Amino acid sequence: MPVLTFSKWSPGGNTTLLFPDSGQHPAEQAWLAALALDPAMLGGEQAGFVQLAQGKLRMAGGEFCVNASRAVGAMLAYAAQNSSPEQGILNGFAADPTQLTSSAPPPCPVRIDEIQVSGWHSPVRLHTRGAAPLWQVEALLRLPACSITTVEEGAQLVRLPGICHLLLGGPAHPLPEDCYAAAAQLRQRHNLENEPAAGVIWWRECQGQLEMLPLVHVRDADTTFLENACGSGALALALRLSRSGTRRAFSIMQPGGSALEVRLFSENGAEMAGVDGLVALVARGKIWLPDPVPRTRPCRA
């Protein structure tokens, strides 16, 4: 029976499970995540594995995730503010708990960290403000050349490293009764089934407020969730809207009820994006996962 230390985070409502990366094979990580994400266990919308001392995050399907990256920013701040040996052992994220000091430093107005995240091509810089159990965390990303193509009326496909998003706006794409079935058909129609992660996002602007509803499928983890927030989806929508005008800052309301703030800017000649929003610590502890059920051969008459 696998036993894992975990912490559960809510970056804007996008509930994220983070586990220590203890060298599990990617297939094992995907299997463990699928078990833990079951509503009968911990539940959640996505999972990742962290080497906190090394500043590395690998999502269970090897995809890229902005919100999980922002959760790691909060985790790093929490670890610094609660750095007793006992806390390190409980969290399971300290590389060597004997190296930790027993006195916690006061919270800094802004904490700056840099991490490597699966799927993304360059380090992700994190600006974290606040203290447990609620932080404000901005993920700063160096943008590559992003492909944005119109694939049908009112629909654009935005390809980011480690994830792509199909954006559906306007009267041609009203919200369907069954989002899961509609998204599955759209992924198949536009040959997105083999992407590491593919989001289908319905969006609109109502009285000046942008709103989006994201449904994300992760191939290797074999998960599909109608998410309460999606950072990379918000970034994709901002990039698409910026192509048709001069707007460079966007406040995008998420289904969970809070907004993600996306800004596009230049830094030292590089195109950059910042995705900012709340991150809350929900729970932490240990989980006892069930052993896999052995496959049995069907009986023959």
Rank of each mutant, 00 (worst) to 15 (best):
V3Q: 10
T5F: 07
F6R: 01
S7N: 07
K8A: 05
S10D: 02
P11I: 10
P11R: 10
T16K: 11
F19L: 11
S22N: 11
H25C: 00
H25Q: 06
A27L: 09
E28R: 13
A30Y: 08
L35N: 00
L37C: 03
A40I: 09
M41L: 06
G43L: 08
A47P: 00
A47F: 12
G48V: 10
Q51I: 06
L52G: 01
L52F: 07
Q54R: 12
G55Q: 03
K56M: 12
L57V: 13
G62F: 11
E63K: 07
A68N: 06
L76Q: 14
L76K: 02
Y78T: 04
Q81R: 14
Q81H: 08
P85W: 10
P85K: 11
N91W: 15
N91Y: 13
N91Q: 13
D96Q: 10
T98Q: 13
Q99N: 06
L100T: 03
S102P: 07
S102V: 14
A104N: 12
P106R: 09
R111C: 03
R111I: 01
I115A: 02
Q116F: 01
V117A: 08
W120T: 08
H121D: 09
P123M: 03
A131N: 01
A131T: 05
P133R: 02
Q136M: 01
Q136P: 01
A139V: 05
P144Y: 02
C146D: 01
T149S: 07
Q156A: 06
V158S: 02
H165Y: 14
L168A: 08
H173I: 07
L175R: 11
P176S: 02
C179D: 00
A181C: 09
A182Y: 11
Q185F: 03
Q188D: 14
H190I: 14
N191M: 07
E195M: 13
A197F: 10
G199C: 09
W202L: 05
R204Q: 15
E205G: 00
Q207V: 04
G208V: 00
Q209E: 14
E211T: 09
V218N: 10
T223M: 08
L226T: 00
L235Y: 10
R240F: 11
L241A: 09
S242V: 06
S242K: 03
R243L: 15
G245F: 12
T246V: 11
R248K: 15
Q254I: 15
E261A: 09
N268G: 02
G269P: 07
G274I: 06
V275D: 09
G277D: 03
L278K: 04
A283Y: 07
A283S: 13
I287G: 00
R297T: 11
C299A: 12
C299K: 04
